[in-house]
Design a protein around this nucleic acid. Sequence first.
DNA 1: ACCTGAACACCGTTCAAGT
DNA 2: ACCTGAACACCGTTCAAGT
Lengths: 228, 228
Amino acid sequence: MVKRTAKGSARAPRRTDSLSRELIIQTAIEILDSGGEKALTLRALTVRLSTGYGAIYHHVADKSDLLATAADDVITGVLSGAVTDADPRTALRRLALGLFDAIDAHPWVGAEFSRQPWRPALLDFYESIGRLLDALDVPEKARFDAAGALVNYVLGVAAQNAANARRLAGSDTDRATFLQNAATRWAQIDPGRYPFVHAAATHLGEHDDREQFLLGVDIFLAGIATLR
Amino acid sequence: MVKRTAKGSARAPRRTDSLSRELIIQTAIEILDSGGEKALTLRALTVRLSTGYGAIYHHVADKSDLLATAADDVITGVLSGAVTDADPRTALRRLALGLFDAIDAHPWVGAEFSRQPWRPALLDFYESIGRLLDALDVPEKARFDAAGALVNYVLGVAAQNAANARRLAGSDTDRATFLQNAATRWAQIDPGRYPFVHAAATHLGEHDDREQFLLGVDIFLAGIATLR
DNA sequence: ACCTGAACACCGTTCAAGT
DNA sequence: ACCTGAACACCGTTCAAGT
């Protein structure tokens, strides 16, 4: 016997969509995207969903479950869109760039996967890398280690992006002035003791994170070619 | 007028070394090494040093200052010991391995530097890398990006080591059974859909983190050689 | 089954008060 | 100057109680 909604029409019928795991996770993603990892608190979630703590814990094991699932959700679509019909080198670059862009747009995802690189959501990523290395004639044993190294590189960049985003979210300076500050600080470094670091400060202002990332991937691919 | 210590001899003269920034940081390092990042709380520090909160905040700005300085302290000696008289390739491998071993011994240091890769304590590291790339005839512009990529790789591995250590510290399973569990979980992955990942599970048990790290460095150096 | 919200056991940090 | 420790403003998580 389903009860009729006897009081459903009192007041403006506040949408009746009850709480669900999916809704909680989507809301968490919104909070994370707009305010960063620090902004996602259970309190913030209860307010945004106008519910209580217990309601959330009924659908979600704990906060780390919430964060991990949110990260999975963001990354899943990105990786499924990867096309692998191009030549292996191009496909690998595309794959790495796809992950870079997704993490660049959602830095908290980078922090999460750098903590938990073995999440099932990354399975397709590993599998694609492995197959592409195969296509590049990398021997089986080396393929495993090479894939690991490449993933470490990608997630290393991811973690740094996340750290940068956290720093920017904390202060009220924007990216440009942040880089400016960093550049001037680096420029003050003693050129006698640290000639390379001092010279590097020159390039800091004009450098593009995405391009630098891609150059790293290229170095990697060139190195992998020697394993054949 | 310096007061004479009139009551200094009452009871066993409990060593008179008063609190200092250095003592606080050394104690923090001990706590971090034995219990991981989670174990370092202000409470734990006050107990271990038998003092109050204010005493600590008198010598240290806040907890992140404490963590950063502790990480600096651990890494400083390691990098100053690096010898650079070997051929550049060997020296680079040695440098990377030195950082790997230090972070392997103190995983929380890896987490910290992956969050703050521009700490002054890493200056010598960057400088050495830059000079060695110079010795390898890498053009100046590419040298900057190549150094960044290499650092990203090293710190990416560092972050993963830290994450693994955190996971092991949390559970009561040791490293061997942890790898065992991971291997069996990976082996259950559908070999039809994920042939590479499934095959990789075979190597998981016999693989050595340090060796895999070094192979990554070698791939990198081989790739860098093509930039000449 | 699904939800509420007070309560609990923690955090880092501050600050009036002591010596 | 250096230290004490109660107090504050937060956390994540639990759980008796409601529907």
